[in-house]
Computed example of a mutant assay.
Amino acid sequence: MMETARISTWQFFILALGYLLGTSFFFRIGGLISIAKQDAWMIPLWSGIAGVLLVLIWIKLANYYPGNTIIQICIQVAGKGFGGFIALLYIGYFVHLSALITRNLGDFMKINLMPRTPIVVFHVMFLLVICYAVTKGVETISRSTEFLFPLVTVTFLLIFFIALSEWNWDRFQGMFHMNIWTTMKETRSLIGFPFMEAFVLMMLFPYVKSKNRIKVSFILANVVTALLLSLGVFFTIGVLGVTRASHETYSLFVIVQEMHIGTFFEHLESTIALILLIVIFIKLSISYYCAVSGLCQLFQVNNRSWLSISLILLVSGLSLGFDNILENIVFNREYYFEYMLLFAVIFPLLFLFLTWMKKGKEKRKVVGSQA
């Protein structure tokens, strides 16, 4: 069942921006640079355009069913049988996405900070915090995000200005030599992660106070994400260079790791690790909340607390599906875009088509009765 929470348009924008930008800012930059070299900063721009076009499709669908989540839309459009099956697939995706985010956290912590700690310890400890936030509801998540967002912003700005001392324009030599079609094909995964993942935010539409401003807020979050990702890639190339950035899984972490101010401020990587935990909290809390809320809506469950606790074991178990971080990277690069097509494009377009068919039949019945 749906809660009676309400969030402002600004809070929805912060949630959308944190959800889209957070983990992608840490995990996507090095991979993009390895493919497109000095031209990698262009990739987020055309991926952002694709993201805006997808948002328009989702907004169009949501306008036909105001006050409903994607789970409720499935049932209204396709019925309890087929629609309920598609809704269950969506819930399965929310759970899988939560597992992928959890694994990203575990890989980062184990590789960079605590290599001797079992990865499952990071998963369970963080999921317990997420479970508590989800139990408290979407208002608590949005207020926490609103409170933490300025801290993340100030930290990134500080990193940017300090690291500019290592900037070298010579690292951009060789720009505009890429094969556009080949590069778009090889970097299609950026459309999947993060821009296609944004359809998850349709689960939050009913809680936004001003329904008329959701469209502007959602599109603006996608545009800002694309611009900041492009700036992040451009910044990384200028500071680390193409060769080095291409071989670093966490290029932003490496930049911070090597930053120092005199002999007093050194080893600032713990700061960026804290920021990563914050942005993962934002994204994981949203995807986990959508999984729990979707189950409650589909099976008419009033109390989501036990569902939240139960999903910890499932998400933690699924997050161990990859043997190592390389398998995770290969899955994301080779298969994630096609995987996302079903949920972000095919199903929404199918629902739009079925909605237009139903409305066409209703119009013909009205015309027939008047005649």
Rank of each mutant, 00 (worst) to 15 (best):
C131H: 06
Y289M: 04
C131N: 14
S165R: 03
F176E: 06
H260L: 06
T140V: 15
L326G: 05
I219D: 08
V134S: 11
W10L: 14
K365D: 13
W46R: 01
V233C: 03
F347R: 07
A16H: 06
P115I: 01
I278C: 10
N168A: 12
I214C: 09
N222D: 10
I214F: 13
S310Q: 05
Q257E: 15
L61Y: 10
A78R: 04
F205K: 05
M114S: 06
S310L: 15
S47H: 00
M125N: 11
L190W: 02
L227K: 05
L231A: 15
G321I: 05
V242L: 08
I219W: 10
S189D: 12
Y336V: 05
F26Q: 00
T145P: 05
T243A: 14
A78V: 04
W41E: 07
F94H: 00
K359Y: 12
G294W: 09
L276I: 09
I191E: 02
R364N: 07
K37A: 11
T135H: 10
Q370P: 00
K361R: 15
I49R: 00
S285K: 13
F351S: 03
I101L: 15
K60S: 14
S285L: 10
G368D: 12
S369T: 09
C296S: 14
G238N: 07
V77C: 11
